[in-house]
Design a protein around this nucleic acid. Structure first.
Length: 254
DNA sequence: ATGGCGCGCGCAGCGCGA
């Protein structure tokens, strides 16, 4: 099973890129973030014509998550149970015996923002829920836009980013709390190129100069990590005209 | 020091992302 995550930054704009990418890479499961669409605006026909079933939890302008799969999508859950949240950031479903949890973790804006406190509360609720979900589903994958660079190796200029959101100790300790549940960062199961990132700012030629962050992740439960044979960031779509600022991340499970 | 790009909304220019 090939499973992927991609923050598309508006599915309306990025649909041609997505369809080309599905045809080229043939993933079995794809999690999308920032679709920025109401459910009734989701391009269901185009995705189904590409050979995928789809579930979506979206809203206008902001957020929005989707799961695409070539196999049946079952036991769909939107949002974190018991955590009231107007923002459409979570979608979970079972595909081929694997529990897939698609997340768009809040950005946080800045350390002194209310949005940062929301991000930390949100992460605490996610950690508690995944702790339970992992017990129910031995084969679990938690993937999406985490808006956390777990280590300085995931940051192009750690000194410049110090004191910023995405790299703060409070965020990183919560990432480690997810790992402490037994989840493994699929990308770090393998040797990787230096300076591997999944997001680059649109401004200042960020991609051309590789001024990026690795903030999109695929975390695998123990049994799935044991079957994982590869994980990569696909920079191809980031090179196209009008790209998303994020690149897709792919993991291959055996 | 600030904003620099791209998106949605909506028709000007602002809020937001990371």
């Amino acid at each position: 099973m090939k499973i992927a995550t991609w923050n598309v930054n508006s599915l309306k704009v990025r649909l041609p890129h997505l369809l080309d990418w599905l045809a080229a890479r043939q993933p079995d499961v794809v999690c999308l973030q920032e679709t920025k669409l109401e459910d009734d605006k989701f391009p269901r026909q185009e995705i189904e014509a590409a050979g995928y079933q789809v579930v979506h939890s979206g809203q206008k302008t902001y957020n929005g998550v989707a799961i695409l799969a070539r196999q049946p999508i079952e036991e769909v859950q939107a949002g974190i149970p018991g955590f009231a949240d107007e923002q459409k950031r979570v979608l979970a479903a079972s595909v081929g015996g694997v529990r897939v949890v698609c997340v768009y973790i809040p950005n946080g804006q800045s350390l002194d923002s209310d949005k940062y406190q929301y991000k930390l509360r949100w992460l605490d609720a996610l950690i508690a829920w995944i702790g339970e979900e992992r017990g129910r589903h031995p084969g679990l994958v938690l993937l999406g836009d985490y808006n956390i660079a777990p280590a300085d190796a995931d940051v192009h200029d750690p000194a410049a980013w110090a004191g910023n959101v995405l790299v703060s100790e409070a965020e990183r300790s919560r990432f480690r709390a997810l790992e402490a549940l037994g989840l493994r960062d699929a990308f770090r199961l393998f040797a990787q190129p230096e300076k591997s990132y999944s997001w680059w700012d649109y401004r200042q030629g960020g991609f051309r100069r590789n001024l990026g962050l690795r903030i999109d992740h695929i975390l695998l439960s123990g049994p799935l990590a044991e079957t994982c044979v590869g994980c990569e960031i696909d920079k191809g779509p980031r090179k196209l005209e009008r790209p998303s600022d994020h690149a897709p991340v792919l993991a291959e499970l055996g």
